[in-house]
Nucleic acid binder design. Structure first.
Lengths: 257, 257
DNA sequence: CTGCGAATTTGATTGAGATCAATTTTCCGC
DNA sequence: GCGGAAAATTGATCTCAATCAAATTCGCAG
């Protein structure tokens, strides 16, 4: 990868896939790595895309060989259960990883499909494992990212009312939007209502009605997939229990046994 | 750690905490390590317990400094939300890890309490990170275990009816029991109904009624916390969507885009 | 611009599981 | 063994969100 580029075109291609030049480097795996370590990471990464909306990146049961980092666009991951029902596990926006759950059994445990035109970095797992081993900072970062996924997933599995879940979901998107340097108030939802509903274990109609109600109550302005948060404080009060990255780690008050 | 033992007592103490001598080594972190690597792992591990029922191992908001492997007994992990409601995240039986979700923010994200008299191995994280770095097989095993947790947690977050959830829960316990070399049919539940209910997002009364119904239908014989699975096949049909370790990775049939 | 299918919204009704309310059983400490 | 408290069960009722059923709006190919 450090061989002389044969033309300008190659240069540009290289730059595009470079972690060091990537605007997402502080959200993604490279976070905390120095330039040398990032270079080593780059050596195993390659780019893929654009993937068209509706096209799959991987499918449940496929042999697991890579994890993926979203560069642009958005993915959803989902399962289909034995009765043919679809369950949306999560949404992945730029800077986020997908496919981590396939490591264990060596097969992908879910399907990943593009919601929009999407490009990703492909991280072939066997080579990534080697680099993780060589770069301690990367090891730390991988463990952190997986740990964060674990918290997020555990939160989702908890029991809350429909409004708490939707409020928490929107708050979560807001935080993720903010981390990417976008507005925490203006969201452009990459997924249809049906997918939000499935993800939150609700009916599509319920999600629609909740959006309507939140709007009536002055929490949001909703126009199709464009959402503006008008009353962040109330939304937070509603959704906090559902939110992941509430900073400190969630200690609210000590409680005796 | 390889210095001459000063007495027999020390020998026994050492043996007790030794990964190499541990009956759980094939379920836990040491899986796949050779004797030398296990010895290195041992050098960072220490034992703790017994922890009495109701006593906490760690609490949400505590500074994260270790993960824990259950040796005997059982733990539950839970959160308390902003409205004081308890949410049971999971149960941990011998050979399983707890506390992995604290890595990311550096604070524990949940509370862990003993359900029975419980002893654990303490794995101080900073030292564990070093050993992971030195022992490639351990790195692989840690990634696998975290990946498995991720799948398990994602499964829990999916939408299923009350009977599917309870059936899946029991199946899951059955598999875990089997992995430990115990009977997959005879379960001794370490937790009260209330905790099962919270974990499955159900009311205690609903869990009780479901146990009664499953018994009527000949699926189970239930006597308080002792459960015998009488009709594994039907239970599997009900609960499969909810179960984690269904071997192959869950690919049922390919589905066109 | 027009029309068609998909997505979304809105309304009416139903139902699974929660909640409220008693018992009954079990578990322990004394 | 006895008494009391916690756990579990059982029954009656209620409620939130699902389902069923249209109506609207939107996106887009022709």
């Amino acid at each position: 990868m450090s061989s002389k580029p044969t033309s300008n075109v190659v240069d540009i291609a290289h730059l595009r896939k470079s972690c060091r030049a990537c605007s997402l480097r502080d959200l993604c795996l490279p976070l905390g790595l120095d330039s040398d370590d990032m270079e080593r990471l780059e050596s195993v990464v390659h780019s893929r895309g654009p993937i068209r909306p509706g096209e799959h990146l991987f499918r449940e049961g496929d042999t697991f060989h890579a994890i993926y980092a979203v560069k642009t666009g958005a993915l959803k991951t989902y399962n289909v259960d034995s009765q043919g029902r679809e369950h949306v596990l999560g949404f992945h926006i730029p800077g986020e990883l997908a496919g981590l759950d396939g490591i264990y059994p060596g097969k992908n445990r879910c399907n990943a499909v593009a919601l929009q035109a999407t490009s990703v970095c492909v991280l072939p797992f066997s080579r990534l494992e080697e680099v993780i081993h060589e770069v301690p900072g990367l090891q730390t970062q991988v463990l952190r990212l997986m740990s964060r996924e674990l918290s997020a997933s555990a939160q989702l599995a908890t029991d809350h009312s429909a409004d708490e879940r939707l409020a928490g979901f929107l708050l979560n998107l807001s935080r993720r939007s903010e981390r990417r340097g976008l507005s925490p108030r203006r969201l452009s939802l990459p997924m249809p209502r049906r997918d939000i509903a499935s993800h939150l274990r609700l009916a599509t109609e319920t999600v629609s009605r909740l959006f309507a109600r939140f709007q009536e109550e002055g929490l949001l302005t909703v126009r199709r997939r464009d959402v503006e948060i008008m009353d962040m404080e109330t939304l937070e009060r509603l959704g906090t229990a559902y939110d992941i990255d509430n900073g400190a780690g969630g200690a609210r008050r000590p409680q005796s046994t």
